[in-house]
Amino acid sequence: MNACLEIRERLSEYLDGALDSEEVSGIESHLASCSACREELSSLRAVCEVLGTLKSVDSPPDFLNRLRERMTSRSFFKRVTRWLFFPLKIKLPLEFVTAAAVGVLLFFILTPQQAMKPVTAPFPKGVSEKARKASVPARTKEIRETVRVGADTPGGILPDTSDKTESLLEIVLEIRTGSVLYRKASEKEAIKTEQQQVRQTPRADLAKPLEAAPPFAEEKAAPAPEIKKDAKDDAADKATHLFQGQESVKARVIGRIVQIGGEVIGSSEEREEKVLICRIPKDAFGRLRESLESLGDRVSFSKEPLQTTADPVEVRVRIVFLE
């Protein structure tokens, strides 16, 4: 049987006369004694004959003309392609730059104008840090207000208020420290006392010690040369002053909250930021906002009305200290 398999593998070549005389005589002697392989050979021969009898298809008479037309149209297409894309070294970068420019243009056209306005932009971009510092007055205060919809308790600062209020209002008060907060040593004690009173006083009585704090305008009036002098103090002293200055601002804010009939229900603080959570009557929100504005110049201000049915409302006041 194995002999038959080997023979059958060579039958195709045998038919084509592609074997040498020795292989041919071997195959022929096997064929003489094996009828199955003879049948196989005759079938293969029939296949070859059948394929050989297939008629050639006629080529269409207009083959050459159609070919010429196609080549002409192809060469036109090729010319256009070449014109559009070649030489690659120059045209591809150009096309890429153009596409990028169109993309940027579309972005600016399609982006709503409102979304492009920054919430706070005390200085236009591109102004160097030095120029900015030079133009900053001795003390700059910026108030930014944002209204967030939905319960929001970042960092676990807020108690669960979802059953009491529908929205969380947030006032962001940005205080540019500059060197103003490094107050004179003589002021240290007053600030310290004020701070202790704030911490010890029950919420309802917050207004009293805060009212006693020196008016903010006085601090503002501090002469610049004196500040510069203070800035030369050693680092530890600076840090203490800075901390006390920040506490003073915080105490003032608490004072304003209490003034308009609200109460502070929670607070948290980090190095550059102090957060006060307070509950105020709904109709007092506008007054609180104005009151905090008076701490400094307002930079931007949301004119959206208060979108809540809750009363009292909870407001988060974030005091951000900027360098």
Binding site: S12, E13, L44, V47, C48, V50, L51
Partner: peptide, 11 residues
């Protein structure tokens, strides 16, 4: 060879 074998079966 394989092509012819296959054709033989199919034809």
């Amino acid at each position: 060879s394989r092509a012819r074998q296959a054709l033989k079966e199919r034809l």
